[in-house]
Simulated scan of single mutants.
Amino acid sequence: MSRRIVRPLDTLDRRLLELLSENARLSMKELADKVGLSPPAAAERVRRLEESGVIEGYTIRLNPGAVGLPLAVHMRLRPMPGELARVAALLQETPEVVEAERVTGDDCFVARAFVRGVEELESLIDRFLPYAATNTAIIQSSPVKRRMPRLPLDEGD
């Protein structure tokens, strides 16, 4: 759920977010040193970013191939009439699906999933066929890894 930013992000906020997006395990001392603040001041800024909903959480980046899931796919799904809620629920309960978004256009959902191979991919697609038309693309490579979006500039910057 998105929250409204109480105040615009300034240069320090944007730098803190950039550093944390690169390495969320930085200590407050390391973070403070990199932005030229004291550790308590850096901690206070990060706390405010958390409380305002700008920072929603901290996570790791897993390499699916290293844990036996080398095949990444994008699935576009177009639910049959009356099946939108069922397809949304099925996406949510399917462990191979790591993210899914409801989108505009011909398809209602775009999902990303990881599987062991083509046989498992076929089984994944078959789960949705009674309720949706699917179009699946195997991801060959990712020239742009997930990254933080370009943040808007504060009018004072």
Rank of each mutant, 00 (worst) to 15 (best):
S141F: 06
F114A: 03
A111S: 02
R102G: 11
I139H: 00
D107C: 04
G117W: 09
F109S: 06
Q140A: 14
V98T: 15
E122M: 05
T136E: 00
D107A: 15
G117V: 05
L129I: 11
V118A: 08
I139L: 06
E99Y: 07
V103N: 13
A132M: 10
F114H: 12
E120D: 14
V98I: 15
G105S: 13
E122Q: 14
E120K: 07
N135Y: 13
I138R: 13
F109M: 02
I125W: 03
C108D: 12
F114S: 00
T134S: 14
R127C: 05
I125R: 11
R112T: 07
R102Y: 07
S142G: 00
V110Q: 06
V97P: 07
D106A: 12
Q140H: 07
D126S: 15
A137G: 01
D126T: 08
L129M: 10
L124M: 05
G117I: 09
F114T: 03
F109R: 05
E101L: 13
R127K: 15
V98M: 14
I125T: 13
S141C: 00
C108K: 08
T134H: 00
F128D: 03
G117E: 03
T136W: 04
D126I: 02
V118M: 09
F109C: 10
R116W: 06
A100I: 08
S141P: 00
L121Y: 02
D106M: 09
Q140S: 09
I138K: 09
S141A: 04
R102E: 15
D107S: 12
N135V: 08
D107W: 09
G105A: 12
V97M: 07
G117Q: 04
S142F: 00
R102W: 02
T104F: 15
E101Y: 15
F109A: 07
I139Q: 05
R112P: 03
V103S: 12
E120S: 09
E101N: 12
F109P: 12
S142K: 01
F109W: 08
T104D: 13
E99M: 10
A137Y: 04
G105T: 13
V115M: 10
G105M: 14
V97W: 05
D126G: 04
L121E: 01
L129F: 00
F128I: 09
L124R: 02
A137R: 06
T134K: 01
E101K: 09
L124V: 05
L121N: 00
A133T: 06
A132C: 10
S141N: 03
L129K: 13
E122D: 14
N135W: 08
N135P: 01
V115C: 05
V118H: 10
